[in-house]
């Protein structure tokens, strides 16, 4: 679960400002019922999955697919659909 950083009214940040990118502390991976599994063997690193992921959950390193970030992947399956070589397969969470 995400860390609770809510505070007393006396410590409310000015104008209740929120720090940039802090949603990284709120994991959405638990929403998933199906899980994309990436096969590096057949992946051509075309990055179609990366550019079309709504959750920024596909990690690219030096132009290649590095991994799927299961902390945030909501399991929509867009990556598997868009993959031209079927290098991503959707599997049931419980099968893993």
């Amino acid at each position: 679960m995400s860390k609770n950083i809510l505070h007393s009214w006396k410590n409310t940040p000015l104008a209740s400002r929120v720090e940039e990118g802090s949603s990284k502390n709120f994991k959405t991976g638990s929403w998933r019922s199906k899980k994309p599994v990436h096969n590096k063997e057949i992946c051509t690193n075309c990055l179609q999955c990366w550019i079309n992921c709504p959750d920024n959950a596909i990690k690219v390193k030096d132009g290649n697919i590095d991994k799927i970030d299961y902390d945030f992947c909501k399991g929509c399956g867009i990556c598997a659909e868009v993959c031209p070589v079927k290098a991503i397969e959707m599997k049931n969470e419980k099968d893993e």
Binding site: L6, W9, A15, V18, E19, E20
Partner: peptide
């Protein structure tokens, strides 16, 4: 920083 976020029952009051 983000200004004008959505704050619900756990924070709006404060």
């Amino acid at each position: 920083f983000t200004l004008g976020s959505l704050a619900l029952f756990d924070s709006y009051f404060e």
